[in-house]
C-alpha cells in the first residue's frame, strides 16, 4: 500500500469500528487493562501504582462519581494481603459528556483511556518477596442508544517487597500470607 493511502485506510477503519460499536447489540462493550510492571516497594514505605484502563471505542462507562444515584459508578475493589496496605485509591474526574439519549443532562463518564492510581505500602512485618494483588473493576457501559449490564474486570498486579531497615528493637514477624 502506498504511503498516501494509509490515512484513508486508518480513517475508514476507525469510523467503521465506531459505527459497529454504535449499533446496539452488535458489539459487546469491554474495558481492558494494560499489563502492569511488577511494583518494587521497600517494606515500611509506600510505592505508587497506576492502573491504565481502556474503554472500547463507541462506549462509555460511568465515572466513580456519576451524577445520579441510580447510575452505577465505576469502582475498583482490591483484595490485598492484610499486611500490604493499599491507600489513596484515586479515580480520575469523569468527563462531562452529553449523549443523544439525554442531550440536556450531561453525564460524568470515562471513555477511551483512564487511569486509577493507588499507593502500596507493605508493613514492616512483611517478608521480602513477591506478592500477587488481586481485585476487580466494576463498570457499567453504554453506547449512544443502549446500556449493558454491569461487568467485572479482573485486576491483577505484582508487588515485589524489598527488605528495608528493621526498626530498632523489633523482630519482624512472618507474614501470614504465602508467597506466590
Amino acid at each position: 500500500m502506498q504511503m498516501t493511502n494509509k490515512p484513508l485506510a486508518i480513517a475508514l477503519l476507525l469510523v467503521t469500528s465506531c459505527a459497529l460499536a454504535q449499533s446496539p447489540g452488535k458489539k459487546a462493550p469491554s474495558v481492558t487493562m494494560a499489563p502492569v510492571e511488577p511494583v518494587t516497594v521497600t517494606r515500611g514505605k509506600g510505592g505508587a501504582v497506576s492502573l491504565h484502563f481502556r474503554v472500547a471505542s463507541g462506549f462509555h462507562i460511568n465515572s466513580n462519581t456519576p451524577k445520579s444515584e441510580f447510575l452505577i459508578p465505576t469502582a475498583l475493589k482490591m483484595d490485598a494481603p492484610t499486611d500490604i496496605v493499599l491507600t489513596k485509591l484515586t479515580y480520575p474526574q469523569g468527563a462531562e459528556m452529553s449523549f443523544p439519549f439525554a442531550p440536556n443532562e450531561p453525564l460524568s463518564v470515562y471513555s477511551g483511556d483512564f487511569t486509577v492510581s493507588m499507593t502500596v505500602r507493605p508493613l514492616h512485618t512483611v517478608q521480602p518477596g513477591k506478592y500477587a494483588i488481586h481485585g476487580d473493576l466494576k463498570y457499567q457501559a453504554c453506547d449512544n442508544a443502549a446500556c449493558y449490564p454491569p461487568k467485572h474486570l479482573p485486576v491483577d498486579f505484582e508487588v515485589k517487597v524489598l527488605k528495608g531497615a528493621t526498626p530498632a528493637g523489633k523482630n519482624p514477624a512472618q507474614s501470614p500470607h504465602a508467597h506466590r
Binding site: F70, L71, I72, F101, A102, C142, A146, P149
Partner: peptide, 10 residues
C-alpha cells in the same frame, strides 16, 4: 429496562 439505563429513561 433498568434504573441505571439512560436510554431507557427516554
Amino acid at each position: 429496562w433498568a434504573t441505571w439505563c439512560g436510554p431507557c429513561k427516554i
